[in-house]
Design a protein around this nucleic acid. Structure first.
Lengths: 191, 191, 191, 191
DNA sequence: AATGAATGAGCCTTCATTCAT
DNA sequence: TATGAATGAAGGCTCATTCAT
């Protein structure tokens, strides 16, 4: 029992530290991009550099961890929107806008999603593994409903949305939402 | 006279050097991105690093110089397409695809266009100064012809096209052309 | 009683832990040298790093402990060989080869014996304290028997043998045994 | 001509700097071993770390450069001794002692020669390429003259001599010369 | 004007050692 | 006692930029 307690306490501490790191990284990713020096992350979190490496041996792991919650929220939103929106196409549009909001509030996330640095491959994979099926099923539903023509592969659509979000945070004259709406309009089957 | 001759010769040499540098940089920008080490550019051009700095004190200046010809060709293409295409909207689409082709054949150029590195500000400015008017006039013509609804600002449209081109060189499953076509479709006024 | 039992149990545990550590260290010393990271030793033993430090505050102590048994076996072998071999010189040669075998099967041990890192001083001392008298007595016996000339100090002889063993594990083209035999041959008094 | 002069001057400067680096490295290799931090070498030479890497991209190259002169002197000494000594065996012994002197005055050189760090492979290769043929020809000559029995391969002999020199600089009670003499004695064919 | 050597800040990463739990 | 998380010094390496020649 005491042993369990001790273990539990340790875990709690470690968890807290990990959370501190995630918060620090999230902040710095926004202000300085996901390639911010490890030292900066450690400093912001008030820990040593070694602690960063202990919790997240690679940068990709840290990035994944930072965004995991929101990626999962996006995954959940897919079926929810399909059920609650008036049509599959409306659900798709809402989901794409949601996905875009997620990316846009994370400065540099859209950027890293298109980085060709092989170190980020696991991150790309994670995003695709989780989100592509959701996007595909929404697109499929809209096609099945006769609302859209099969112009784009789900992968291209997601990639395009991701790209459209790049740089939005720092440029008030650039509104990805508008572009996404136009894009979805372009998918619509002419009546 | 001899003095003049010498000076003249030097100028010729300097010119040759500058062109050699531009060629070297163009090649390396394609293969290694616009952030390729200065040393590599100098080495490829067969000159010293100092020579690079003499001709192009900042990286932005070098990038601008490298792409100047093609940017100007894009500028020229605007009126030409407007004159030769069956409709303003068709001219706009062609021009956007042309712009995209330009970006896509320059690895990393689309990326740098969205970089928030302040050092690239002059580069951004140059692109906007030259290309935005062209894009705006094409969009305006299409609107005036009643072909499109005024959904997007010219700046947003160009920015979006630029973004869509990111990462296309290394990903055969991603075809910006398709996305651009869908986007233009979405601009069309419903009949 | 219960208290005693607990204490007793703890001691048993501690002993077991210590032995586990020695085994783990012995294995890793062979494969990775005596400077293998403490963490690796702890991991192999299935304990925390702190436990390593508790049992062996310095690396030298750990190394000494790991090799104690075999050093003592070498010590024992001296008189045994003197008694069982046909001559003191034969006994000396056998003992030196035995010593060499010991060193050679411990990757990096010969190396550490010549390390000038002051942290290893206790280790050096231990080896000398235990083994030098044995070597000296064997050499002395051979001299007394008129088999060898007093060319070398026992210390030099041992040091030389130790050095000859360095690197033998990884180089099949280098056979310290041959060199030791030649060296012993060179000690022999000409008839 | 002016161009040539300029080039020549640059070379002179670079050479001086390179020599400064070699001197600094030589000193530090003696006091701290050949694995002394690059930063320390740079500091001792009064240059930046980048300068070290410019001149010697890898540590092995630096080590080779530091010892090149003396290795070559050793190479030269082989034939000279064969010609000047009364017998091939005497020449061999002198040469081995010379080789040992070389190693012993370079603290840590003998150590690095037995290092299994793959980064030092070029260094090992260089030593073997240059010195092994010399040692082999001396040994061969002694065998041909009937002075020694073919007990050892040239490689083993050199390796053994190298090992015997380890740690001699810091231990006044250890005299590799004595051991080498005994070893050569052991090679001699019994009359 | 050109050269390219030199500089040194800056980043990543490892690991011995300490210490809170 | 045992644990293993945290620390942070250390060292390798790169590259933008300066400057003597």
């Amino acid at each position: 029992m005491t042993q369990d307690q001790t273990t539990e306490l340790k875990r709690v501490d470690a968890r807290r530290n990990e959370q501190t790191l995630l918060d620090a990284a999230a902040e710095l990713f926004v202000t300085s991009g996901v390639n911010v020096p490890v030292r900066d992350i450690a400093a912001r979190a008030g820990v040593g550099t070694g602690t960063v490496y202990r919790h997240f041996p690679t940068r990709a792991e840290l990035v994944i961890a930072v965004y995991r919650h929101q990626v999962e929220a996006c995954v959940q939103a897919g079926p929810d929107l399909l059920a609650s929106q008036p049509s599959p196409l409306a659900a798709l549009e809402r989901w794409l806008l949601l996905f875009a909001d997620f990316l846009m509030t994370k400065h540099g996330l859209a950027t890293v999603l298109q980085s060709s640095d092989p170190g980020f491959a696991p991150l790309h994979q994670y995003f695709l593994d989780r989100l592509l099926p959701v996007c595909a099923s929404l697109l499929q539903a809209a096609e099945a409903a006769g609302e859209v023509q099969p112009e784009l592969e789900p992968y291209e659509l997601m990639r395009g949305i991701g790209n459209l979000c790049i740089g939005a945070e720092t440029d008030p004259n650039y509104r990805p939402h508008r572009l996404i709406e136009v894009l979805v309009m372009g998918l619509r089957r002419p009546v």
